[in-house]
Amino acid sequence: MREELLRSFVDMDEQEAVRIARELVETEGGAVAVLDTCKEAMEEVGRLFEAGEYFLSELIAAGDMFNQIMEFTLPKLQGEEVASLGTMVLGTVQGDVHNIGKDIFKVMAEASGINVIDIGIDVPHEKFVEAIKEHKPELVGMCCLITLGVDSMKRTIEVIKEAGLRDDIKIIIGGGRVSQAVMEHVGADAWADDAARGVRLSKELLGKE
């Protein structure tokens, strides 16, 4: 059943994947099996995206399937120890009110085992600092879609530095406007203009791959 779930999920057969997951989750140890299989499927979808076989459309559809299945799987995992690769504070930087890219990344990052604290859109610089103090993440993810986001990321990182927190965290920037040049300009540690690359690099920054 796990094999069938994996195959239908990766093949984007939504109805079939949800049906199998619903069945599997009711069996002994099924919830853990569903979670692990869906994580594996999301990883495979990310790999196919990076190989150019899948597109954003598949990332969105996979993320939606993952969320649908988790909705009835996670309540059955209460009390189970779910391994986490680390914690990431994630937000779209001040001035930018877009969320699609952030949301696509978020579900893929969660599926990879990263504990994501989503602090929203148009996030003031100071709110990143507060969230770092509160959640003590290993990673901070900053997104932007529009060009003003570049300078906003730069200022956010400066404010994090001024608060003396820069050395405690790794910073990855993501979204339509980022590049190697932008990463160097703003002083981040990694950049990704798609969610699959973003998750892969986040795991690398966490020392997990």
Binding site: V150, V178, S179, A181, V182, H185
Partner: peptide
């Protein structure tokens, strides 16, 4: 020309 380059380079 990428606007991100105009900002960053």
């Amino acid at each position: 020309i990428d606007v991100s380059d105009i900002i960053s380079l």
